[in-house]
Design a protein around this nucleic acid. Sequence first.
DNA 1: TCAGCTCCTGACAGCGCTGTCAACACAGAT
DNA 2: ATCTGTGTTGACAGCGCTGTCAGGAGCTGA
Lengths: 344, 344
Amino acid sequence: MGDVAARAGVSLKSVSRVVNAEQHVSADLAERVRRAITELGYRPDRRARDLAAAPASGRLIGYVQVDAANLFFAAVYRGLEDTTRTRGSLIIAGSTDADPERETALIETLIESRVDGLVIAAAEGSDELLRREIAHGTPVVCVDRLLANAPCDTVVSSNRDSTRAAVVHLRELGHARIAFLGGDQRVWTATERLAGYREALHNTAGELDPDLEIVDVGDVARATQATRRLLTAQRAPTAIFTAQDRITTGTITALHELGRQYDVALFGFDEIPFSEQLNPSVSVVAQDPYEMGRRAGQLLLNRLSDRSSTTPVQTVVEATLRHRQSGQIVPLAPQPRTEGDDRC
Amino acid sequence: MGDVAARAGVSLKSVSRVVNAEQHVSADLAERVRRAITELGYRPDRRARDLAAAPASGRLIGYVQVDAANLFFAAVYRGLEDTTRTRGSLIIAGSTDADPERETALIETLIESRVDGLVIAAAEGSDELLRREIAHGTPVVCVDRLLANAPCDTVVSSNRDSTRAAVVHLRELGHARIAFLGGDQRVWTATERLAGYREALHNTAGELDPDLEIVDVGDVARATQATRRLLTAQRAPTAIFTAQDRITTGTITALHELGRQYDVALFGFDEIPFSEQLNPSVSVVAQDPYEMGRRAGQLLLNRLSDRSSTTPVQTVVEATLRHRQSGQIVPLAPQPRTEGDDRC
DNA sequence: TCAGCTCCTGACAGCGCTGTCAACACAGAT
DNA sequence: ATCTGTGTTGACAGCGCTGTCAGGAGCTGA
């Protein structure tokens, strides 16, 4: 920057003014500075600018996610990126793999980078650290998770309601025994979905059999295994609700292996690729992660521009029931039924 | 930091020493400083540290990708993240959506953030800017693309060779007319794959019909349409090579629509989700994007630690042919055949 | 006792930029 | 001729930290 100033024969401050397009700069001087800049290939140093300028210009945002290679988190990221780009913000992201230590370390590093805002789409954890940071004045938005006892904006899906709706649908098809395959119950979304399942059975006077509630099968292999066990057991379920994309994948694999894909109904949480092309096509509750990221970005930007308000905003992004073939399969045993089409 | 120093009754420099775990610090002083740090909740400012410290400590890495929500780029990101985390590096990423202007703007912003290294996994573009930056001393690694006339490390897949192998395989099954559906030919990987297709036909004395070479159908909808057109035309192909995951998806959709999925052979480039569960299961050339990201990270770390070497390193990550059902379908018309199983 | 050494500590400049404030030029008004 | 106001410019301090260097304490051996 000094070189530019020297070459243009002006002061440092004048270069700064030109670079920032401030007013009260004569056209002549601006022109000289601009020429010097291109001749020297000068690029301002963002770090120094942020250091010297007033704090929290909203130029750097931290994004904490479970796994960047997971479609859900990648889509949230994209939504966030697209909303915040308009303000010229950059995003520093990191994956935690649901490891609390990694999560804490990552958040600390982001804080040290003096991000102007933090978006957390991650498993539970680091609550204390986050609360301290919020108290310290950094805007934090939680996506797909909660943060108790802190004024923290939140964006979540309609986990419980949508699960309940899907399971009620299976009940209306005549299914008496509906299994639930869910993920790690330490995660809030997982408990919400289980609660939705129970509510559905409760509301429709359905059978609440603990044997049909299988949790902590959050990866493909365990879901495959659990499905096999479920279907080869006595009093096997006639329908399965899978509470997560990886579980849905595992269950589909098992169903195809056993050749049961046409007689066991399946409803999954999370859209999966090729849900339409599979045979039978797969009914799912589709979240909208891109929209969740967009909302998170907007909430963050709002906080950044208006730091006075402290009431946290809770946003629910409605998930959509996508009715396809697998969720329309009716139970094999003769049952009274009110609706439903054939079994493909 | 001043507060910490005051509270501990020491100088700024001593706090700095403790924070950086330098030697020649008495246990007593270190203890006092540490206590003051926790009491005050002090967190060092990474920006200021990087600004004051010697340059290029490899703490910040820029990653330019086409689309963060795309599985390929997300996996590259993950590989990059996992390799560079060991050095305590953070990654700033941005998506370009293959828009050259966005790409240039993004790279410039990253340069202004004084990233210590740059990984570019993107469509072509910004070559001049990158060359300048390389000349300026910033290590740059190109993933899945080339950068001519610059000492730039590169990580690519075996696009041409693997495509050739897959098409040769189809030829050996007896397919005389094999269509090629490819993406934007301004992109290097797309031209490589087309070249591999042509080499395969050439090497096996196959028919090179321009009508069977369809390019610039890089999204699902256009691929679906192109497949329909291809199969309803006279002298329709008996096998299709799709040069990209989105094209493969579109072609599968069309094949299922037309009920032709069992008599038209399909081999795709890029692994797709549920390739095993679809019926017929889908043969693909599987890239290893995570590994590509890992290699890119290693190359970058090497450059960062040894700035002397200037010879660029070219890395090819071998793609794998995953033979499944769709690529084993033999042509309908009676043909001499040497191998292959039934048509599902 | 004192040079010569190691170990520890702090003063100070400076990284590259921006905010503040003062200075100056020149217009129009008195 | 003097005053006020507006537009333009630069000097300088300081953002939060680290590198350099000098100085003091404490130990060794002569």
